[in-house]
Design a protein around this nucleic acid. Structure first.
Lengths: 254, 254
DNA sequence: CGGTCACTTGAGGACATTCAATGACCGTGG
DNA sequence: CCACGGTCATTGAATGTCCTCAAGTGACCG
């Protein structure tokens, strides 16, 4: 029977089998027997408080991390010394994939709220992937999905309309929350307006104005951190828009 | 003994061992014995002519492709039906990584010039990676590097300055050409101005104006497709710039 | 209750886009 | 060989979006 270094911390029997994120996280597509082996190498860490670092640029990459609860922001420092937010990570998502190539973390990972993560020692994961084809395949898939997501994001940043960016961002959050069993319509923005703006390549003021504008248009209700999406259809149209000639000129669907 | 379907096309003994891209492409970090196994699964394809498709969105992903000579553009169609260029791929670079997760190509790959590629059947590659730890590790590294590159690109698109984007783009090309044994200072832009603009999230006219501006500033010489980088130092400064207050106002190095 | 911080709102300006026209290059066909 | 039409690239002028700067409001905390 498996050694139980992962267990006592939170009184859970298994790290993965019982996890509600089972079908989002690494285990997806891995058979039950294979899952045992994976569970044996996963460590749990004490929850991180808001603002605590999971890793920083230059840190040796010793493990990947799966968000279990809470949310994490990753960011890096560009040449000019300014922060650039590269992603927000919700439960079931894997962090640290960009560090595999050099063995050094190129970016910062910081908890946006009280957050718990599973720690997966990378060398052991690599070994295991060599023995368990299903796991190897799943890892390739996860990394591929990440690449696909980034390409999608590039498309978003390439579009110049600020409305499309924020709308797409909110819809992305909505979808991901939904997949995790939370409400698609109503959720909390755990990141600051500043972070959102930075991530989307906009100014804070623009983001703020867009929220009010969206509210006036009846697309959503926003109160501080809480967002309620009202008109999903309209939101999707907004996210599809690319040019300046798209707002309130009457919908030319595109 | 290995079937030799890869050989006769161009009279080469081996697909990888003799390849000048040996230390850029997959084989890097894979031992000589292991290399044999890899070579055995690689197919060569007849060269693609300019404009020919390597794959299109919706195509089943059956293989990854390594560019051997020439260059390839990848792009996808966004919601609004407009093309979005997601990358330019030079010799030694791998295509199709974004298709692994779904088994379907999400984007288009099209030759920018006469181009030859190595075809690597994915199911066989996956099998082989399970048997050859060095290969598995290398594949993880390659995908990780791709993710890192995309993050860097996001940072670029987040910066609003158009100069920084074009400068960074040219420097990226320069670096990659240099790594492949070509000149770092002088190279051909195989893609159209339109493609560059699309890739960088700018208008064609802006790119055109920037080329003339850079030329006036003595940063480069450009003639049609041919680019000569003159002042690399200045180019780097330009690429590091982020705000509007960076050009010809005297360098506040940042 | 006063302080700090994050967010919101307003006014002005800069950069990039859009529209429009000219110019260079290429293949075709006379 | 030269004329022709097409595509691609460049250049100019005007509009617009988003940014910057600045002030104001509200929440949270000691």
């Amino acid at each position: 029977m498996p050694t139980s270094n992962i267990i006592d911390l939170h009184g859970l029997k298994k790290a993965c089998s019982n996890c509600s994120l089972h079908d989002l996280c690494i285990p997806m597509g891995v058979s039950d027997q294979e899952l045992d082996a994976l569970e044996r190498i996963i460590n749990r860490r004490r929850p991180l408080q808001r603002g605590e670092y999971l890793y920083r640029p230059g840190d040796r990459m010793q493990a990947l991390y799966a968000v279990r609860a809470g949310s994490v922001k990753t960011s890096s420092i560009s040449d000019d010394g300014l922060e650039q937010v590269t992603g927000f990570h919700l439960p079931g998502e894997l962090l640290g994939l960009d560090a595999i190539s050099d063995g050094i973390h190129p970016c910062t990972a910081r908890a946006l709220e009280t957050t718990s993560v599973c720690e997966i020692p990378y060398d052991r994961l690599e070994d295991l992937a060599g023995q368990v084809p299903g796991l190897q395949r799943q890892l390739f898939r996860i990394m591929s999905r990440e690449i696909q997501f980034d390409e999608h994001l590039m498309t978003l940043l390439g579009k110049k309309s600020s409305e499309a960016r924020l709308a797409a961002f909110l819809l992305s959050l909505s979808k991901r929350f939904g997949e995790r069993g939370f409400s698609r319509q109503e959720f909390n923005l755990t990141m600051s307006r500043n972070d959102i703006a930075n991530y989307l390549g906009l100014a804070v003021e623009t983001v703020s104005r867009l929220f009010t504008r969206f509210q006036q248009l009846g697309l959503l209700e926003v109160n501080r951190k809480l967002v309620q999406l009202i008109d999903m259809e309209g939101m999707h149209q907004m996210a599809g828009a690319h040019g300046p000639e798209t707002l309130e000129k009457g919908g030319r669907g595109g």
